Structures are given as C-alpha cells and as structure tokens.
Computed example of a mutant assay.
Amino acid sequence: MLLSVLAAAIAPGLALLAYFYWKDRYDSEPLSMVLRMFVTGVLIVLPAMVLQRGLTIWLGDSPFTFSFVISAGVEELLKFFVLYHIIFNHTEFDEPYDGIVYATAVSLGFATLENVLYAFLQPTTFGTLLVRALLPVSGHALFGVFMGYSLGRAKFSKGKQVRFHLGMAVLLPLIWHGVYDLMMLTVPSSWMWVAVPFMLLLWFRGIRRVNRANAVSPFRWLKREEEIKS
C-alpha cells in the first residue's frame, strides 16, 4: 500500500519531466544534468518551508499575503536562485529551450516532494492524487515553463534586455502561481469549472512558449542542413 501511494505521488512529476525533456527537438540536454536539477528542486523544499513558516509568523496568513508572498514569492524566488547560480552560465545552456528543460526539472522536483509529503501526511485517495497531478503538480511544471522561457531569452539577449528578461523570469511565474494559490484559497473546492479553464489557459500559454523557444534554437538550422545533405 505504501509503495503504491509513493508511486502515485511520484509518477506525475516524472511523467511531466519526461514530456518537457522530449519536447527539446534539436539538442537534448544531458540526462544527468536534468536529474541533478530535479534533485535540487527536491532539496529546496525544506528551506522553503522554513522561510514560509517564518513569514507566516511575521506577516500573517491572509489569502493575498499567503498566495503572492509566502507561497509563490518564496518558492519561485528559490527556484530562480538555484537556476541562475547553477545553470544560467553553464556551458550546457546553449539554446533557449534549455531554460525550460532545467526550470521545469527544478519545479517538478519541488512539486514531487510536496506531493509525497501530502500523500503521507494527509488522508489521501487515488482521486485526490489524480486531482493534485492535474492541478498543483501540473501548475508547478507550467510555472517552470514561464520561468525557463524568460531565462532562455535572457541568456541570448544583450544589454538591458538581459535584466528585463531575468526580471520576467521571476515576475511571470510568481504572478501565475499567486493567482493559482489565491483561487485555490478563495474559490469553493466544488467549483472545479473555475480551476479547469485556468489550467487550460496555463497549458495554452506554456505550450506556446515551448514552441517559440524551439523555433529559435540555433541547432534547428544545423539539423535541417544535415537532413538536406542526407
């Protein structure tokens, strides 16, 4: 029973990680690096929990403060911190889509441990885990897409555009994450018709960024030339 619950809690994060990894059409990242960032996402859960507890004591836990500062603010800033300091200047970050791969890896590592903790600390059914796979785990993946897309643009920009896109790498996922959390706190849980369109909107915008990042890969033209020659 414990193993089945653990597998159900871990599977959504790994499945989504595989999905975004395989979306890299032209120059796949080393799997070891992707898994390293996934584990890094797991490891930042503890400092996030400590910071969130301290901020809750200091600021209180009103829905808006919790959503945009304590939850989204802490989590997205920690994700950005590790991505910027570990990946941004790494030699493997050599095309815009790489930002999405590594950011979703960190986000899904974080979401997976959250899901495991929830599965073992809360009364859980298969239906509950399915809903969590469709909402918070999927949400974290898409917040990672928004962060990674902007990191990719910053990596291959110049001048003031670098700072602008780095700022967007924090701001965009923080806003979407905050809106999601606020909706979960203030909208009755029976109103799934509100959550589902919101997630569809996130997926629509996320996939557009995936396609845009792939479209500007410098390896796209190299692959096309190889196909023509062959």
Score class of each variant (00 low, 15 high):
residue 188 P to K: 07
residue 68 F to S: 00
residue 117 L to M: 13
residue 184 M to Q: 14
residue 61 D to A: 10
residue 73 G to R: 00
residue 215 A to D: 11
residue 35 L to E: 02
residue 160 K to L: 12
residue 129 L to W: 02
residue 109 G to A: 04
residue 159 G to Q: 07
residue 70 I to K: 04
residue 100 I to Y: 00
residue 26 Y to K: 12
residue 107 S to M: 02
residue 1 M to R: 12
residue 226 E to G: 10
residue 140 H to I: 06
residue 165 H to L: 10
residue 21 Y to P: 13
residue 43 L to C: 06
residue 23 K to V: 08
residue 26 Y to R: 04
residue 149 Y to M: 04
residue 115 N to L: 03
residue 27 D to C: 08
residue 44 I to R: 00
residue 114 E to L: 13
residue 140 H to Y: 10
residue 225 E to L: 15
residue 184 M to V: 11
residue 146 F to I: 02
residue 43 L to F: 11
residue 154 A to M: 00
residue 162 V to Y: 09
residue 63 P to F: 14
residue 7 A to K: 09
residue 138 S to K: 03
residue 88 F to S: 02
residue 63 P to K: 07
residue 200 L to Q: 11
residue 172 L to Y: 04
residue 193 W to P: 14
residue 85 H to S: 05
residue 105 A to R: 00
residue 183 M to Q: 15
residue 133 A to K: 06
residue 7 A to M: 14
residue 205 R to Y: 07
residue 214 N to S: 13
residue 186 T to E: 13
residue 21 Y to V: 12
residue 85 H to T: 04
residue 166 L to C: 08
residue 134 L to E: 10
residue 46 L to I: 13
residue 138 S to H: 06
residue 53 R to H: 05
residue 178 G to I: 07
residue 52 Q to T: 04
residue 99 G to D: 00
residue 15 A to P: 04
residue 195 A to K: 14
residue 50 V to E: 08
residue 10 I to F: 06
residue 223 K to F: 14
residue 125 T to N: 14
residue 213 A to D: 02
residue 106 V to T: 02
residue 128 T to E: 09
residue 90 H to V: 03
residue 81 F to H: 11
residue 132 R to I: 01
residue 136 P to F: 08
residue 121 L to V: 05
residue 122 Q to P: 03
residue 19 Y to W: 07
residue 6 L to Y: 13
residue 195 A to N: 11
residue 230 S to G: 14
residue 47 P to F: 10
residue 146 F to H: 03
residue 156 F to L: 07
residue 195 A to D: 06
residue 1 M to N: 11
residue 115 N to S: 05
residue 132 R to D: 00
residue 2 L to Q: 12
residue 194 V to S: 12
residue 18 A to Q: 11
residue 170 V to W: 14
residue 92 E to T: 09
residue 118 Y to H: 04
residue 229 K to L: 15
residue 91 T to R: 09
residue 186 T to M: 03
residue 19 Y to N: 15
residue 144 G to W: 01
residue 88 F to M: 12
residue 226 E to M: 04
residue 138 S to E: 06
residue 160 K to G: 15
residue 100 I to P: 00
residue 7 A to C: 03
residue 212 R to Q: 15
residue 138 S to M: 08
residue 174 L to Y: 05
residue 79 K to E: 05
residue 125 T to F: 07
residue 57 I to V: 15
residue 67 S to T: 07
residue 5 V to G: 12
residue 119 A to Y: 01
residue 61 D to E: 09
residue 148 G to M: 02
residue 178 G to T: 09
residue 44 I to Y: 03
residue 99 G to I: 01
residue 112 T to F: 08
residue 144 G to P: 01
residue 84 Y to V: 12
residue 105 A to I: 01
residue 106 V to G: 01
residue 157 S to Y: 11
residue 39 V to I: 10
residue 135 L to H: 07
residue 200 L to I: 09
residue 217 S to V: 06
residue 82 V to F: 03
residue 206 G to D: 00
residue 6 L to T: 00
residue 118 Y to V: 12
residue 228 I to F: 09
